[in-house]
Amino acid sequence: MVDIAREIFAEAGYEFDYQNFGWARSLQLAREQLIDGVVGALKGDAPDFIFPETALGEARITLYTHPQSQWVYDGIDTLQGKTLLVINGYSYSPELDRYISEYSDDPERIWILSGPAPLARALQLLDRERTDVFVEDSAVMSWFLAQNTSIAAPRNAGLAYEAPLFIAFPPENPDAAELANLLDSGLARLTASGRLAVILSAYWLSDPDL
C-alpha cells in the first residue's frame, strides 16, 4: 500500500514520507494537521475522514491464540471467558468494535495496547499466555512474522471480518479531497499500465488481493 501511494504521489510532484506511529496517535496527529493522512484505515476507524473511492488493500481481521490453544472463533459469543488483546484506536469489525467498547473497562475481557510497535508486544504477551486472544489483520501478521523469524508464530483461530483498506485524510486538511482523488486516478493509471501488478508482485500479491 505504501509503495503504491509513494509512486502515485511522486508522479504528481508530492514527497511521500511514511512514518510509523501508534494508531490512536496517528489519527490525532492527522486531525491536528501535523500529518496529512493515515495509511491502512478502515472506514470505521475515522468515519468523518475523506476516503478515496477505490481501496488500496483488503483487511482480513483474524483472531490469534497461543500455538497450543484449541479455541476457535465462531462469533462474538465464543469470546466469553477469554481475554481479548486489542490495539488502541483500531477498528476491527462492527461486531468486535461494539464488544470492545462495551467491555473496555473490564480487564478480564479486554486488554488495550498503546504506543509504537504494539504487534511485537502483543505476540510476546500471547506467547507467555498472559492473554488468550489477539486480533490482527492476517496480511500484517504474515509480513511481521516474515520480517521477525525469531518470533514464534501464533495460531490462527479464525477469520472475524473482511473489509477494504484505504489511505484516508482528515476533514481538517484542506487538500483532503484532492489527495483522495489523486489516489483514485493514480491507481487507475497504474492498473492500466501494468505497473500495479509489478509493485504487488514484490509482496507475492495480485490485483484482487491488493
Rank of each mutant, 00 (worst) to 15 (best):
G115P: 10
A192W: 06
L29Y: 09
V133W: 01
A59F: 07
R60D: 05
D74I: 01
I4F: 02
Q28P: 03
G75T: 15
A146S: 11
L56H: 09
V140F: 01
Y73G: 10
F134G: 00
R98Y: 04
A163M: 07
I4D: 04
E95C: 08
W204R: 05
D17Q: 14
L159A: 07
A160I: 02
D77I: 07
S104A: 11
V140Y: 03
D132G: 09
S201D: 08
T54I: 15
T191Y: 04
Y99W: 15
G75D: 07
A202C: 12
Q80D: 15
D106Y: 06
F16T: 11
Y18V: 12
S185F: 13
D77P: 02
S193H: 03
G37H: 00
D175N: 06
P154G: 14
P118L: 10
A10V: 04
P174Y: 01
E7V: 03
N156K: 11
T65F: 00
L56K: 04
Q70P: 09
P164I: 03
P154W: 00
M1P: 02
W111C: 12
F166S: 08
S101I: 09
E58G: 00
Q147I: 02
L182D: 11
A55D: 06
I8G: 03
V86E: 09
L205D: 06
D132S: 07
Y64A: 06
A5D: 07
W204G: 11
S69C: 13
E129K: 11
F169E: 15
S93Q: 09
E172V: 14
D3Q: 04
V72Q: 07
I4N: 03
L182T: 05
A160S: 11
A55P: 02
P94I: 13
L34F: 10
E32P: 01
A197M: 00
F16L: 09
S193D: 13
S138A: 01
P164N: 11
A30N: 13
E102W: 08
L196T: 13
Y161I: 01
E15F: 03
D74W: 02
A188P: 03
G22Q: 05
G158D: 03
Q33A: 14
S150P: 05
E95P: 07
T149H: 14
P116H: 08
Y18F: 05
L165M: 05
S104T: 08
R130W: 11
V135F: 01
A55F: 01
W204D: 10
W23L: 14
D48A: 10
S26Q: 14
D137Q: 03
L113G: 12
W143F: 08
L34N: 08
P208S: 14
Q19L: 12
V2H: 13
G158L: 09
A122I: 06
I87D: 13
G194H: 11
D74F: 12
